[in-house]
Design a protein around this nucleic acid. Structure first.
Lengths: 132, 132
DNA sequence: TAAATAGTTAACGTTTACGTAAGTTGTAAG
DNA sequence: CTTACAACTTACGTAAACGTTAACTATTTA
């Protein structure tokens, strides 16, 4: 196996994901990512770190707090030797899936609501144009 | 038309939506809802107010800030006489629809990710059970 | 090798979204 | 009428999620 060479610095990663370096370091403080270091103590990020960060940002866009995201990630990082631990993670993951499905329904409602408003507006515009 | 009698007090509304009265008053401060008052200056909420509040909470669950939600509501409250204003609202609504569709895609990704992790865990459990 | 650029930690500042407490007024029950 | 409870306003407090600045070190570039 290779030691895939797709690494980058903190500022490169920040630019790629359109966030600040402060944000990345903050997530590290919270234990959400743990990049390797160069001999000079500078952070280096792999594709894996990058994927992890994207997952974090995605979670945030759905209103999950960093603590909740930390939990989800905890699941992803499960030590695959302890069978009890694995089963707990499964239960946790299923709970999250439940939540996600609920969110999807709410997303539909939100869309409906906006579409309805849209229709009202369009109808109104047509009425106004006829009156001219 | 009736003056539909489906009104309630702030604490009733809070209980119904499982939030605190403080939260409701806070949203009012921010201009997100403007209930009528009794002669004694107490807030009364109609079905419409209630629907509005639900919309706010739904938006929050998708990581929209209160300011963003205020914008969305601004669209819903458009003064239907100014044709320019209506058209602006339409454009704004379409932007929000774009965002919502993006969120849906991300939701799918999130679900995939969890399902993949789930599969890994299940496979691992089976392996461990065979070894017994 | 020197200068410019980028990265590091530490610590204090800021914004958002409420929580909480104090003191006052409305309203329903006895 | 008064007791009790709910609602009102005002204001200070707080946790989360970063922003900003300072003082220092590593790395790249001339």
């Amino acid at each position: 196996m290779e030691k895939h060479p797709f690494t980058c610095s903190i500022s490169q990663l920040a630019k790629a994901l359109d966030i600040t370096t402060r944000t990345i370091r903050f997530y590290e403080e919270k234990g959400l990512i743990t990049p390797d270091r160069t001999p000079g103590n500078q952070r280096i990020y792999t594709r894996k770190n990058r994927a992890r960060l994207k997952l974090i940002l995605r979670g945030k866009r759905f209103g999950f707090s960093l603590d909740e995201i930390a939990e989800m990630i905890g699941m992803a990082d499960t030590d695959l030797t302890e069978i009890d631990q694995i089963q707990k993670s499964l239960v946790f993951g299923d709970k999250k899936l439940e939540q996600i499905r609920q969110r999807r329904q709410e997303l539909d409602l939100l869309e409906e609501e906006i579409l309805a408003t849209r229709q009202t507006l369009i109808t109104r515009i047509e009425q106004l144009k006829e009156k001219e």
